[in-house]
Design a binder for these strands. Sequence first.
RNA 1: GGAGGGAUGGCAGAGCGGACGAAUGCACGGCUCUUGAAAAGCCGCGAGGUGCAAGCCUCCGGGGGUUCGAAUCCCCCUCCCUCCGCCA
Length: 427
Amino acid sequence: MIDIRLVREDPGNIKAALARRGVDPSEIDDLVALDAASRAAVGARDEVRAEIKVLSKQVGEARRDGDSATAETLAEQSRAAGERERELNTEAEAAQEAVRQKLLYLPNLPAEETPDGAGPDENVELRSWPETAPTYADHQRVPHWDIGVELGLLDMERGAKLSGSMFPLYRGYGARLLRALTSFALDSHAEEFEEVRPPTMVLTDTMISTGHLPKFSDEAYHLERDDLWAIPTAEVPLTSMWRGDILDEADLPLRLTAATACFRREAGAAGRDTRGLLRVHEFDKVELFAYCTPDQARDLLETMVARGERMLQDLGLQYRVLELCAGDTGNSAAHTYDLEVYSPGVDMWLEVSSVSWCSDYQARRANIRYRQADGNLAFVHTLNGSALAWARIWAALVETGRQADGSIVLPEVLAPYLRGERVIPAA
RNA sequence: GGAGGGAUGGCAGAGCGGACGAAUGCACGGCUCUUGAAAAGCCGCGAGGUGCAAGCCUCCGGGGGUUCGAAUCCCCCUCCCUCCGCCA
């Protein structure tokens, strides 16, 4: 969440920053009013509490002096104050909770460098690869869902039979390809990023820390009986690994990588991209994550994007890099780059990575701080990025690699992970 | 699932109705000494909120309760450890 003090000190500035992402300025006015009310209520309660403390101390003294009459008089006064305290406390807590709720729903402030814009159409294309766009043959213009059926790699019908639509089931070479991608990715990050295998079901507090709750509860799967949430991305558990902790500055940046399944209800996208792997409820993804100081954040963002790009080049997939505009940047992020691959069979650009700098928005929610050289505490910055999301990569690889005879040639870099078998034979 | 023991500052660990926001050690910061460093000595040092400030308030796993007053007593919950049961 954003720092309430910034709102208090300069509401106009916050209004302007959040207006860039479509937040109504009146929201900030509401927040300022709630905050003022909260501080007044807390102050009133604290005064009574101070009174009770003084009285209690005096009761003790009177008792020691053997003056039981005075002790009883003071105790009576304290009891009366206690009743007032209970009322004022109820008010104060309600007022504080109102401020917190308001803050939990407000998105992060966009970074200065994040370009203006209202939605996806105004994102900025920074670069693309390869420099000259490839041409694609007719045999590459076959959608992956057809290829999947033809070669026995993807069985969406049986997936739906088990779990409903948009739950893919991979078979044979198709399943092995996924496993190869995950191994390839983790190995390539291993030198700089510690490999983690976190739980995929998490507590409500864990989801709140990243900003996925309370605002986006419709997008997540919830197991009611145990009150657990299926993670939409490894970013969620990784952010909470150090929730509530104080890190040493010397340990920063702390870099992690994790492969997990990711679960998304896609409630807001019902009926869109329903075929194949373009949009699914469960997919595997390798995530990069970092905790760092504010000074380290911008460089880290660039190096994480570079890792994603490097992998796409290694996989031989055509891609472009988008800098998201303020209006399209995710709730928790200050600045985001998306990587999109071109998939010739469906003739679409598919988002396969989103790399975000969340400034201290998540750290504030999760209360993750570090001790600076001067001894003071400050919130860390968090960054996350996919490297990469496999379902759409799988689609692009199968479509791009399709040969005239119907077989599929996979990238050289995956050979070690495919027992040397880079070619999925034609049917 | 059953039985017992725990949870206190960055870490370790005392405290078990009032003088406790909390001993002590380590870590950390400053200073002295030193050519420099180490060692030693001295001083400082939990966090959050609010206030111009002095100050005031909150926090001893979480939530309730008893009491004039709770880290300390009672109840519930969570997590950790030991033992038993079950289990991939």
